[in-house]
Amino acid sequence: LYIPPGFPHEGYSLENSLNYSVGFRAPSGRELISGFADYVLQRELGGQRYGDPDVPLRDQPADIVPAELDKLRAMMLDLINQPANFNAWFGEFITQSRHELDVAPPEPPYQPDEIYDALKQGDKLSRLGGLRVLRIGEEVFVNGEKIDSPHRPALNALANHMVLDEALFADALEDPSFLATLAALVNSGYWYFAD
């Protein structure tokens, strides 16, 4: 079955089946600009006002000269050209799920020490299918959120492995703040202990 670009679809199988989907849904320029604008507004970035105190008098006061447009464009592009903001926006934007995830948060929620004990006893955490996780530089993003932690090997494990065991977390499991972050991810239904 070929589905051309620009034609949304959502198929459901009527019985057990196996399917493969090949392709990449690239965002349009409109989606990218809109998403970045939302990011800028939410974080109150770009508060600098356009100013040009040296505007010369001109014969036609309604005319906007190319140099003025260039200065305005440069001011707008300056926001995009800040790597920290651009990378953070892109990580959040691209990992947000476009479809509803089949999350099943555990009931009752796990406490960090329960996750610690389970991993130490050899249990493994599996990533929810369809969950978007990526790494940009040293930062890891999960479903539209940046995961803050100084434990780079553990963050790399979250980004690069579908199944996680104690060894992949290294010393991060000894840090209560990392365990709290991991518990929040598990309690969101993004990772789960396979039975």
Rank of each mutant, 00 (worst) to 15 (best):
A167G: 01
I147V: 13
A154D: 07
L158C: 04
S149Q: 11
D148I: 13
E107K: 00
A154M: 09
G137P: 03
L158V: 05
P106R: 09
P153S: 02
R127F: 08
Q96C: 07
G137T: 07
A159V: 10
Q96K: 02
T95M: 00
R132D: 10
A167C: 08
Y116R: 12
V140F: 14
D165C: 07
V140K: 01
E92K: 08
E166L: 06
M162F: 11
D117S: 15
E139S: 11
V163Q: 15
F86S: 02
K120M: 14
G144N: 15
A167Y: 05
E138I: 15
G129S: 14
E139F: 13
I136F: 04
A159T: 03
F141T: 10
A88K: 01
V103R: 04
G137L: 11
A159L: 10
W89M: 04
Q96D: 06
P109N: 14
F90T: 07
D123T: 12
E92N: 06
S97R: 01
K120Y: 14
G129N: 13
G122Y: 12
E139P: 11
N156F: 09
A88H: 00
E92W: 02
V133P: 06
V163R: 06
F86Y: 02
K146Y: 10
E100L: 05
L119H: 03
G129L: 14
N156Q: 07
N143R: 04
L128N: 08
G130P: 06
I94F: 01
R98G: 03
V133C: 11
L119E: 04
D123F: 11
P112E: 09
L101F: 03
V142W: 08
P150T: 09
L131D: 00
T95H: 05
E100P: 00
V140A: 12
N156A: 14
L101E: 00
H161P: 05
R152G: 09
F93W: 10
R127I: 12
D123H: 06
F93T: 05
S97M: 07
E107Q: 07
A154H: 10
F90Q: 01
G122T: 02
L134T: 13
D165F: 11
D165Q: 06
R98E: 08
V103M: 06
E145D: 12
F90L: 04
P150A: 14
A104Y: 14
N85M: 08
H99V: 06
L155P: 06
L101G: 06
A118T: 15
I136E: 12
D113L: 12
K120E: 15
E145I: 08
I136Q: 13
L131P: 02
E114I: 10
F90D: 05
W89C: 01
R152F: 08
D117P: 15
H161Y: 08
K120Q: 14
E138M: 15
D113W: 11
A84F: 01
A154E: 11
